[in-house]
């Protein structure tokens, strides 16, 4: 029995190591002064310095950040409002719309990219930041919507009733009780959206304009043509940013957790 758990742990460790291997290699090679990636030419910050000088790379970073923050904020607003309003609204076909709105994360990205490309040219939207934001918002909404919806289901109904009983109007109930309790879900939905948007290549390639490069598109074209080790440096920086977002979301999760424990306890 003891032996089995040890084997299991070794397995977990081994697969995890494999997961991190490419990432670590990218980080290590970002400090490689040699231009050829298979040769180690000594430690240097050379590529980071060159990266800073690259204007187009900088633009791509800015674009990506604008895109990710705009779409995650839009998604947070639309998704949260909908998740809160949906159980209370009385509209025909709301279940169907609810299902359809989550399609963008169910269907393959390539299809989403393709339908957006053709549709945007049909309705003559100029390709660029606008089309990128619309496309990214479409696959960010489901994340926020589903997380907030799940959280709402977990909230004891009598909390809202208690607030009403104590004299709060429906609107006050929302701002005093519901909103604070779903806030962690909204924030994690936003962070997830942000990360997904920052990472997206497939859809972006289809809906971006000639002059709007996002970071993943830039990296993708570089990987297909010729790689300069600058990419290593850039990747390392992005890894750092990602780690930050990850830790942030864990922190948010912790903030919400003592409510959750209490609610779970009450649920029994």
């Amino acid at each position: 029995m003891k032996n089995n758990t040890r084997l299991a742990n070794i397995y977990l460790g081994f697969i995890l190591a494999l997961m991190y291997l490419p990432i670590i290699i990218v980080i290590v090679y970002s400090f490689n002064s040699s231009k050829i990636s298979s040769v180690w030419g000594g430690f240097s910050f050379k590529w980071y310095k060159e990266l800073l000088r690259d204007k187009s790379m900088f633009d791509a970073v800015v674009n990506s950040l604008i895109l990710a923050s705009t779409s995650s904020i839009l998604a947070a607003i639309i998704g949260t409002l909908a998740a809160v309003g949906m159980p209370k609204v009385n509209l025909p076909g709301k279940g169907v719309v609810e299902y359809l709105s989550t399609l963008p994360i169910m269907i393959p990205e390539i299809i989403l990219g393709m339908v957006f490309l053709t549709y945007f040219s049909l309705i003559r939207l100029p390709f660029g930041m606008l089309t990128l934001v619309i496309a990214h918002t479409s696959f960010c909404i489901p994340y926020v919507y589903m997380l907030v919806k799940a959280r709402l289901v977990g909230i004891d109904k009598s909390l809202a009733e208690a607030a009403k009983d104590l004299g709060a109007s429906e609107i006050r109930v929302f701002f005093d009780i519901t909103l604070p309790l779903i806030l962690p879900a909204i924030l994690s939905g936003m962070l997830l959206s942000f990360a997904m948007s920052l990472d997206d290549v497939v859809i972006s390639i289809f809906v971006t304009g000639v002059n709007t490069n996002t970071l993943p598109i830039k990296i993708y074209t570089q990987l297909r043509t010729g790689v300069t080790p600058k990419i290593n440096a850039l990747s390392t920086l992005m890894l750092g940013a990602n780690l930050l977002i990850c830790l942030l979301s864990v922190w948010i999760g912790k903030q919400g957790s003592h409510h959750k424990e209490y609610l779970e306890m009450e649920g029994n």
Binding site: D156, S158, L159, E161, D165, L166, A168, S169, E266
Partner: peptide
């Protein structure tokens, strides 16, 4: 309910988990 001068002690207490004791009572 918010217009009635009647208050309820709920079966599962329904304390607001994100407010302190003071916050709950003073709500």
């Amino acid at each position: 309910p918010n217009r009635r001068n009647v208050n309820t002690v709920f079966q599962n207490y329904a304390l607001f988990p994100h407010m302190t004791v003071e916050g709950n009572i003073s709500y």
